[in-house]
Structures are given as structure tokens and as C-alpha cells.
């Protein structure tokens, strides 16, 4: 466990040194504040709406930004060390390969967690400070959004690690990471919607549609946040889902956890067998 802690701490220190942590927190804060305060300019006002509305807006932002940050942090975790020539030396030290990989994962998730906590925290605090009254359920919805953003981010960090151990060149890893992001954040939903629209014979049942939705981590994140609290669901147009009970949020959370465990386990498996 000591090796995992040392590698994770080193990853955090590196993130601080190369300004990754600050840059990620700033990007998230900037986008979150813009959405929170300038999101209503289309209807002629520049002021913060309620926290529940901000959760809806930020959820849409999060599914684009956080996966991208997670993949950017992690795509060269192993292949980058290999190309820089540091991997051979590090692996000669008294630790197992899974410990090295897991330490990197923990460190990168910690960086992402800090960026989300600071970036979204600033926006949330500013909105809450401006709002006349904030309900506790709204605060809980915002907290859930931040927490689940970290979990979704961790899923993409895990995916980035898998990509990083599966390839031999950093450029290939960067291309695959970008592809994974495009697929999950943009293409998947478009294809799914297109398929449903084209499915005149009803082959895709409601259950299958739900499964397909849960199979994508960004959709699982959206579902978790937009269906967990009624205040949020009312604004998001997912009140029907919210009223069906706790099944959707739990399944969404489960999907996100699976998206952490599966790529990370595969990454460890591949890394253990990889010839350095």
C-alpha cells in the first residue's frame, strides 16, 4: 500500500508542478460560472437562477468537460512514462505493476476531484450566495452532481489507463482517447436517437433503450443527476423518470462504478503481461 501512496502523491505533486491541477480547476470554474450566470442572457437577464437549474445546466457541461479532462490526464500514464524512458527504472523498484498503475489512477482521480470541488464549488457557492432561498434538496442535488462528476471522471481516467497500457505510442493513445471521448460524449447519443427514430417496428424496447443508455457512462451520469431529485427533474424534463423511484439512479451509479472497475481491471491485466 505504501508504493500506491507514494506513486499517487507523486502524481499529485507532478500535477501541481506542471499546473495541471490549477488549469483544470480554472477551466471548470470558468465554464461553471459562465453557465450559472450567463445562461439566462438569451431571455434578457444576467443573474443566477436557482441551484436546481444550475445542476441541470452543469450536468450537460460536465458530460463534455470532465471525460475530456479525465482522458487528457490519463492517456499517457503508462505509454508516456515508457516513451520518456522512466518506466523501466520505476518498475525496477520494489512494487508490483498493479500498484504502480493503481497509484497513478488514485493520484489522477485526486487531481480531478480537487478540480471539480474547486471549480464547481466556486460556482455553486456563488449561485447559492446570490439566490434568495436555497432548499436543502437543491444543495444535495448539487453535491450529488459534484460527487458523480468525480466518479464519471474516474471512469474516464480508468479508460485512459487502459488505452495507455494497450498501445506502444503516445500519439496512438492520444488518438484513441479523443475517439473514446467523441464516441461517449457525442456520437453514442446521436446514434442511439437515430436508431430509435428509425425503429418503426419497435425492435428497441423501453428496457433495451434504458440498458443502452446506461451502457454509456456519460448518459448514466446524466440519468443519475437528472432523475435523482424532483426539483432538478422538473427543470430537466425528466420528472417521469424521477417519479418511477430509485431504480434509475441506482442503476446509473452502478453503471458508473462498472465503468471504473472494468477498464481498470483490464488495464492491470494487460499491464501485468506487457513486455517492457
Amino acid at each position: 500500500m505504501n508504493a500506491i501512496r507514494i506513486i499517487a502523491m507523486q502524481e499529485i505533486r507532478d500535477g501541481l508542478r506542471n499546473k495541471w491541477v490549477v488549469a483544470a480547476a480554472l477551466v471548470l470554474a470558468l465554464f461553471a460560472l459562465s453557465i450559472a450566470f450567463l445562461g439566462s442572457t438569451a431571455v434578457g437577464t444576467v443573474k443566477a437562477p436557482g441551484l436546481a437549474v444550475v445542476v441541470v445546466s452543469l450536468s450537460s457541461l460536465t458530460v463534455f468537460l470532465v471525460p475530456l479532462l479525465g482522458l487528457m490526464l490519463s492517456y499517457d500514464a503508462i505509454v508516456g512514462e515508457s516513451e520518456r524512458g522512466t518506466l523501466l527504472l520505476l518498475l525496477s523498484y520494489p512494487m508490483r505493476r498493479w500498484q504502480f498503475l493503481f497509484g497513478k489512477f488514485i493520484g489522477q482521480v485526486a487531481i480531478l476531484m480537487f478540480a471539480i470541488a474547486v471549480g464547481y464549488g466556486i460556482a455553486g457557492a456563488a449561485v447559492a450566495w446570490q439566490a434568495q432561498a436555497v432548499q436543502s434538496s437543491e444543495i444535495m442535488a448539487f453535491a450529488l452532481m459534484m460527487g458523480s462528476a468525480v466518479i464519471m471522471g474516474a471512469a474516464f481516467v480508468a479508460l485512459g489507463h487502459f488505452i495507455s497500457v494497450a498501445v506502444r505510442e503516445r500519439a496512438t493513445a492520444a488518438g484513441l482517447a479523443l475517439g473514446a471521448w467523441l464516441l461517449s460524449a457525442l456520437v453514442y447519443d446521436l446514434v442511439l436517437l437515430g436508431t430509435v427514430a428509425a425503429d418503426s417496428q419497435g425492435i428497441i424496447s423501453e428496457n433495451l433503450f434504458s440498458v443502452l443508455l446506461l451502457a454509456n457512462p456519460t448518459d448514466a451520469f446524466r440519468l443519475l443527476n437528472l432523475a435523482s431529485f424532483e426539483e432538478v427533474a422538473n427543470f430537466a424534463g425528466t420528472a417521469g423518470l424521477a417519479s418511477t423511484g430509485a431504480a434509475a439512479p441506482i442503476l446509473s451509479a452502478l453503471s458508473l462504478v462498472c465503468w471504473i472497475v472494468a477498464p481498470l481491471s483490464l488495464a492491470i491485466l494487460v499491464f501485468r503481461r506487457k513486455e517492457i
Binding site: D14, R17, N18, R84, G85, T86, L88, L89, S92
Partner: peptide, 9 residues
């Protein structure tokens, strides 16, 4: 190792 390298920062 033959080509020693460290984190530059």
C-alpha cells in the same frame, strides 16, 4: 538504465 530520464520539473 541505459537512457536515464526523470520528471523535468
Amino acid at each position: 538504465p541505459e537512457a536515464i530520464s526523470f520528471q523535468q520539473q
